[in-house]
Computed example of a mutant assay.
Amino acid sequence: MSTVSHGFKSSKQDFAFGPWKVTAAKTHIMKSKDIERLAEEMHMPSLPEMLFGDNVLRIQHARGFGIEFNAVDALKRVNNMRDTVKVACAQEWQESRADSEHSKEVVKRYDWTYTTDYRGTLLGEDLQIKVSPTTERIDLEKLKAREQIMFFEDVLLFEDELHDHGVSMISVKIRVMPTSFFVLLRFFLRVDGVLIRINDTRLYHEAGQDYMLREFSTRESKVSALQHVPPALYTDPNEIAQHLPLKLMECEKLELPDYEPPSKPTSTPQ
């Protein structure tokens, strides 16, 4: 796939939301030599065709802690997946992608669909966000309320057409409203004629709260079980998601580090 950009302009946007700074950076696809170097470091025979290694969505508190979403950390979660998709074309596909030097190596277990269960990268050195399971859920109905969107961005992290056998991609969207922000990190996989899988991470924070809510879900179906769904929907993650059975749901509370108590105001005469 050509890495020539068609009039593409790099962009970096910052948006202040109370004590938070939201940064969305979008730039060019990584150069092939950088991709090769990264693949070597990650012990993977190949990486996605379109890898936006410098794209990032970062949400950082003035005191340093926060969360960000980037492609390299998403790829680091690929090898950890317990299952790999076995399809007739997988072997042929791998051979066609393997460089001569790689093909001589013994390729360790490798998920050629790049399925990742990435949920974001926590930021902060001295102050860390504490993650714990919760039964509290994001109020999606509340999010449907027509509230002014003060900032919106959609950042693509990687995409691969699986050697013309489908698509594997991950992108992250944020929208900031006057009183909250909402993030959707979505991994979408379609292996033509075989299966469709969506891994979603939703992150929600209401201004003034000392925590965020994060929900991770996996939805998946064999294509043979989707006979009732028009094939035109297979390529639209938003449409097909509602037809895929839920396989996993994990809800977490991300507690923000204790705030330093503000110093007592000195009394001023009225």
Score class of each variant (00 low, 15 high):
R37F: 10
K12E: 15
S11N: 09
A16R: 08
K31N: 07
P19L: 09
Q13G: 00
L57T: 07
M50K: 11
K31E: 09
D14R: 00
F52M: 04
K26C: 09
A25H: 13
P45F: 08
S32M: 04
I67H: 06
T23L: 05
T23E: 12
I67F: 03
K76G: 10
D73R: 02
A16H: 04
H28D: 11
K33S: 12
T23D: 05
S11L: 04
H28K: 14
S10F: 06
F69H: 03
R63A: 13
E68P: 00
M50Q: 06
R37Q: 15
V22K: 08
G7R: 05
H28Q: 13
M50S: 03
A62S: 14
F69E: 01
F8T: 00
V56P: 00
S10H: 11
E36K: 15
R58W: 05
G7D: 08
F15K: 13
L38M: 10
A16S: 11
K21A: 06
S32K: 10
L47R: 15
T27A: 12
A74Q: 03
M50E: 09
R63C: 05
E36R: 15
A24R: 03
H43E: 14
R58P: 10
R37M: 11
F65M: 01
V22T: 06
F52G: 02
E49N: 00
F8Q: 04
A71T: 02
K26E: 10
K21C: 03
H43K: 15
A25I: 10
K12G: 14
R63H: 13
G7T: 03
V72I: 15
H61R: 11
A24D: 06
I29F: 02
G64L: 15
P19H: 05
G7K: 04
F69P: 02
M42S: 01
S32Y: 01
F8D: 05
D54S: 15
G18S: 07
E36A: 13
E49Y: 06
L47A: 13
V72A: 02
L57P: 02
